[in-house]
Nucleic acid binder design. Structure first.
Lengths: 342, 342
DNA sequence: TATTTTAATAAAACCGGTTTAAGATTGGTA
DNA sequence: TACCAATCTTAAACCGGTTTTATTAAAATA
């Protein structure tokens, strides 16, 4: 590729003149400018992205840091990406998706600063290493989900009202007569798990009932969501005084529950009601009957996060903002009133 | 952020020693190396990505260039991204998604070289500007879909057997007794449209029938897929000797067809059979009855493209490869034998 | 006409790394 | 002891832009 020096030489002007023709930071006379552009075209010259970045310290790229089970993203994550991209398009930013393993990143040879103007962090944990790292540099950062409590005042974030949703789902099930409700929650170290557990608990208390803490189970890292859903549901469905309803953290988890129910010849929703936190699901076809769920509006989460981040980058606006994305409960076929034996 | 000079000074060594500690390109004695690493940690130093890239000319980022209707990506595209990401993860690459408008990119101030080691191009057109640009730089490039004919020997690509799929769908409909089959094809300038039209035509000919060229319609740019599906189907369903089957380019288009049929009180599949080229659809819930389709396996397309590209980057392997991803026809509820009046 | 402004261009410094070529130390060998 | 090779370190050049400062020519002012 031709460099700025080649162009300068060929056009008989200095480097800085060529630079100014492209960046328009200083006026260049029409004659000279045209000449430079013509030569550039002939030599197929374009300013080198990284050289420019090194000098200006601006990449016009934002980063999205997300982790996935076995590196296959769920519909929730993909919808979210869609939202982020939509916002990027309108504002002239590109999106860098970073899914590199920490093994890779910890190798000394791969230790480098991040090549972005700012980053979106997903699925924050109670004591999140990534957030600490982000804060130690002074690069803009937006969280999707709720940051650890002590950073609530420090970081902008966008989230669903997870306490509220869990409350609503639980209340609804209680109204339908269910009491033995299994809550398959997110992993313990994720902040979202805390919020949802609280909504679950408060719903019981507000209905004058004891919250069955022993029925709140957190996903473990060793299993996939489907496995965790299957194994746990299977176990609790075999008990004598068995559960009559399940709230699952994701649709994949709910799929495991469906499979467990099927294996035990338990009919949904007649003998078991199932709710999930979910976006529209890709494997909807595998849910028979269709899954009732709280729609989390991932796309809006993504759009909002991108908007927040880019504003922060451009306006150098350190104002901390919090946004709550509404979510609707969709009653489909997997929930019904508690079945009364006999 | 601390720079390499800061670290060198603080550790009492030269720049190049610090550099070699991180890059491991030359041996540095344990004592010195430890000292440098310790100082780096204290100063929170990491090599600057852009500066390193400028010197090494390697970014370890691959690009994905895709366009979407109103910048909302379909399930097909998102699944594809999933595949690309999966492959990136294993190979230590990050993914840069570029959806910038050509307006933006054509602005002189935004004219820059691409900051990636190689690029994946989607949805090639018969006379594709992007491909020309890619080839004029000598950066590795892989196409998803079929490149223009004259570049068939020049570019690696990965594609479905679109001729074959179209043939199969059409033959199946012919077997069911349909003859007036509306083919809602991709936009005329896309190479995929040519392949599918050919499969459609050959199926008719092999069955000893004339191919109804007047029933092949290409999507126009002015409309969204849903609108195009709706408008066109609506028009053809009102004719006297009306169509009895439709093959749609995407599931969104098929959704438009469903809506047109519904508006005209035409029952699917009794009075109208519908097939689509599709991945699993997000709005499956909106299809009643469920949509029969050819599954294009977008995820595999994405994985394969990324693998191909990264191999090309790393091995500097100029060997042109062509990969065909198989696709299966999924018979669901939207197709049936032609309804005989009376 | 002499003096100041203004506009356009150029020269040089800089961004923060890597790489090349040269230099210093050490240990081993003749 | 002198010489060589091996090992480690460094100074300087380089990657390809932007930005600051300097210079020149033309226009405006006194």
């Amino acid at each position: 590729m031709a460099t700025i020096d080649d162009v300068a030489k060929a056009a008989g002007v200095s480097k800085s003149t060529v630079s100014n023709v492209f960046t328009k930071k200083r006026p260049i006379s029409k004659g000279v400018s045209d000449k430079v552009l013509e030569v550039s075209k002939q030599l197929n010259y374009k300013p080198n992205y990284w050289a420019r970045t090194l000098a200006t310290k601006e990449t016009r790229i934002i980063g999205l840091n997300m982790q996935a089970e076995r590196i296959k993203f769920s519909q929730f994550h993909l919808s979210l990406v869609n939202g982020v991209l939509h916002e990027c398009y309108g504002r002239g930013y590109q999106l860098l998706i970073n899914t590199l393993s920490s093994d890779y990143k910890n190798d000394i040879q791969n230790q480098v600063s991040n090549p972005v103007d700012g980053e979106i962090l997903m699925d924050p944990a109670v004591d999140d290493e990534r957030i600490k790292k982000e804060l130690s540099k002074e690069r803009p950062c937006v969280v999707i989900g709720k940051p650890p409590k002590h950073l609530d005042q420090t970081l902008s974030y966008i989230d669903n009202d997870n306490v509220g949703i869990a409350y609503e789902l639980t209340s609804h099930l209680l109204t339908l007569g269910h009491e033995k409700i299994l809550f398959l929650n997110a992993a313990k170290h994720k902040t979202v798990a805390l919020d949802r557990a609280q909504g679950f608990q408060t719903a019981f208390e507000d209905n004058g009932k004891r919250c069955p803490h022993e029925l709140i189970l957190n996903k473990t890292i060793n299993n996939t969501s489907i496995e965790f859903g299957y194994d746990t549901a299977f176990r609790f469905l075999q008990e004598r005084n068995r559960i009559t309803a399940v709230i699952a953290d994701t649709d994949k988890m709910a799929l495991g529950v469906y499979q467990a129910a099927s294996a035990l010849n338990i009919t949904i929703p007649k003998h078991l009601s199932v709710f999930a936190f979910s976006d529209d699901s890709v494997f909807e076809s595998e849910f028979q009957p269709r899954l009732s769920s709280a729609r989390l509006n991932a796309e809006q989460l993504g759009e909002g996060a991108a908007r927040l981040l880019i504003e922060q980058i451009q306006e150098n606006n350190k104002l901390v903002k919090r946004i709550v994305i509404p979510s609707e409960v969709c009653h489909r076929g997997s929930t019904s009133t508690k079945f009364l034996e006999g």
